[in-house]
Design a protein around this nucleic acid. Structure first.
Lengths: 128, 128
DNA sequence: TACACCTTGCGACATATGTCACATCCATCC
DNA sequence: GGATGGATGTGACATATGTCGCAAGGTGTA
């Protein structure tokens, strides 16, 4: 549903790169970078599931997490919000300007460009 | 100091366009768009002063508010944060991509481009 | 079997933000 | 002078987010 916070986005980025992952795995990855304790990582994960940002699965008998929505869908939502609310740019925009992004490749940017062309800020595409 | 939230940014935008303004004036302007009660507007204003986002003055014997930092300085900070934390683009970026912005004109974009070239995310330029 | 370690379930507390209401106080207009 | 309306001072409560700790249960190994 809602947009992820900075911390939540860090978790999502890790999961988009590799999913599913256990809480411990995420704690050792992005959690470590953020200086979190295992508890903090777990709490954030649980809240993200509650918000519908993540889905739970099982991996080797242990609870694991996976992203609920695709990277392009979520990133497009965040870009739209920023460009609209902060920059106040609503018309078509050149996603090519974001080519330097370390999280989005050409294909994904193209997909985002399509998403930004129609989806509105509130109901960001439920595409998974 | 810190970055403004969406609501706080709305207030700032109004003040960059015209300052100083009384609480009532801001309530009738951006406050109305946000559907706030006068109390909400006032609380937000007080918190913004506490955070150093606004400065208080007197206007016709009534308390009034003005932006503590210039539009380019604040916008550059927001852009830097978004581009860095969300998009993960840290190198030099084409501010020309944001030409369609309703809040920034060419001169301001040029100033921002310069700011983004050096200022770091944390200590965003104290330029007023 | 008993210890050790990991996963899980829960609870907690602080700060930031959103959103108001209420009680006062002051100047102004009949 | 008293009523009216706006400006101020303060207090409150809810939700979101950041950040943990603790106790209980499971499982494998010495």
């Amino acid at each position: 549903m809602s947009h992820p916070s900075d911390s939540e986005l860090a978790i999502l980025k890790s999961l988009w790169a590799s999913a599913p992952q256990s809480a411990r795995s995420l704690h050792d990855g992005p959690g470590a970078s953020l200086g979190w304790s295992l508890s903090s990582t777990r709490t954030t994960l649980a809240r993200m599931v509650a918000k519908g940002l993540l889905v739970e699965t099982k991996l080797d008998g242990v609870r694991a997490y996976g992203p609920a929505r695709s990277k392009p869908a979520v990133m497009a939502g965040l870009m739209r919000r920023f460009l609209s609310r902060v920059m106040e740019i609503d018309g078509p925009l050149p996603t090519s300007a974001f080519t330097g992004s370390a999280v989005l490749d050409a294909d994904e940017l193209a997909e985002i460009e399509a998403l930004l062309a129609e989806a509105d800020d509130t109901a960001d595409g439920e595409k998974t």
